[in-house]
Simulated scan of single mutants.
Amino acid sequence: MSVPLESLHALALGDAFGDRWFQVSADEAAAELTSRRVRPAPWHWTDDTAMAVVLFRHLTEYGEVEPDALAAAFAAEYTAYPGRKYGPSMHQVLRAIQDGADWRSVTSSMFEGQGSWGNGAAMRVAPLGAWFARDLAEAAEQARRSALVTHFHPEAVAGAVAVAVATALAVRCRGGAAPAPADFLTEVAGHLPESDVRSGLLVAARLPEGTSVRHASVVLGSGRQISAPDTVPFALWSAARWLDLLPEAIWRTLEGWGDMDTTCAITAGVVAGRTGLGQVPEEWWAAREELPHGL
């Protein structure tokens, strides 16, 4: 299995794993997390994975991001399977594109011309980072292009670039020593423009080594606002902290609560760039909804 495909499978695993925890009460979830009891099968994945699959197949066909074709593919997937828990703004964006509107005018008109700063462009992009791991600048540029198709706001774009670069760095350190979390996060931040996402990553890099997940989630946010600045720094802090341990990274990311399917998807997609999939228990794969045929 190729490294980008491993990243896609891990992303889908994190997505489905995290989403399953929305279906229990807070007290029950806390007790089961403490005892590390996984949720019963089946674990269905959400729009995070649906859009990541579209992006991966797009790269397989074109070798790079062709925004017009990618926009059409996202809209077609949404039209076929609208029940994958897409966010409210994405219902509007993808319906408009499917109805023939130009994606540029649609995305740039959202939220009074600011565009969406949601975490949707970041949640799907880890496999792209693995795809372009040989060239960090190219990974950043391709992530930017993939983000703009649905998210016009600079923060959403920065979030996607951050996740792509982080995954590329994880791939590049396969077989060698893992970078220190602070160094990893600082390097990712160095590829971003001035933004709240960049600032959040630099704050994450300065958190002491023994920082608890709960404290990190309070300082950085864990997706409760469904925004890129509120999601990406925490997910990448978790990835950097447990870069050698894929199942542990997923469990620890879950401890931040918040937008659990998305934070777990981002973290898992990044970490698998370094670890591959061999650490994942077979029962997890048996519980997770399969990806579409051929993947």
Rank of each mutant, 00 (worst) to 15 (best):
P193L: 07
V54D: 06
A228Q: 00
L148F: 10
R36P: 07
H191L: 01
P208R: 02
D102T: 07
T60R: 14
L94H: 01
F56H: 14
W21G: 04
T262K: 02
V93H: 03
R84V: 08
S146R: 07
S212T: 15
A140T: 02
A73N: 07
G269K: 09
L243I: 15
T79V: 01
G256Q: 06
D47W: 09
P181A: 02
V149H: 01
P181I: 00
L207P: 05
Q23S: 04
I250N: 05
A162I: 13
R124T: 12
G63Q: 13
T46V: 06
A162S: 12
A178N: 06
L254D: 04
G118Q: 06
F234M: 00
A287F: 09
S195F: 00
T275I: 04
A30D: 10
H9E: 14
G175K: 10
H153D: 15
G223N: 05
M51L: 15
A170L: 06
Q142E: 14
A160K: 11
E61A: 15
V271K: 07
A16F: 08
L291Q: 11
Y81N: 14
G87Y: 08
V219Y: 03
G129I: 07
T49G: 09
A168M: 01
G256R: 08
A52R: 09
G14Y: 03
T263F: 01
Q279A: 15
G63Y: 13
W103P: 00
A189D: 11
V24N: 02
L246W: 03
V280H: 07
A265V: 10
H58F: 13
T267I: 01
P292Q: 04
G120R: 06
A268R: 09
F74E: 08
R39S: 13
Y62V: 12
G176E: 15
A287S: 14
D99A: 15
L33C: 05
P229G: 11
I250D: 05
G176T: 14
A69D: 13
S217F: 11
L136A: 10
V219R: 13
G175S: 12
E66G: 02
S195W: 09
S25Q: 08
L202G: 07
A50Y: 01
E155I: 12
G113D: 03
W257L: 14
R36L: 13
A30F: 04
A80S: 14
M110E: 10
R206E: 15
D183K: 03
T262G: 00
P42A: 06
H293W: 08
L277N: 00
S222H: 08
G278K: 11
T267L: 03
G269V: 05
G276H: 04
V197Q: 03
Y78R: 01
V171S: 11
D27I: 01
L291F: 04
S199Y: 12
V163Q: 06
G87K: 10
Q114C: 00
A265C: 10
W242H: 15
A164T: 00
G269N: 00
R224V: 08
A249K: 05
P181G: 07
A228R: 02
G100L: 03
A143R: 01
T150C: 10
A204H: 12
E283S: 15
E282C: 07
W21Y: 08
S195P: 10
A287P: 00
A205N: 08
G273A: 04
S89Q: 12
P233V: 05
R274Q: 01
E282W: 02
P208E: 01
A69F: 06
A50R: 06
A177F: 07
L5H: 08
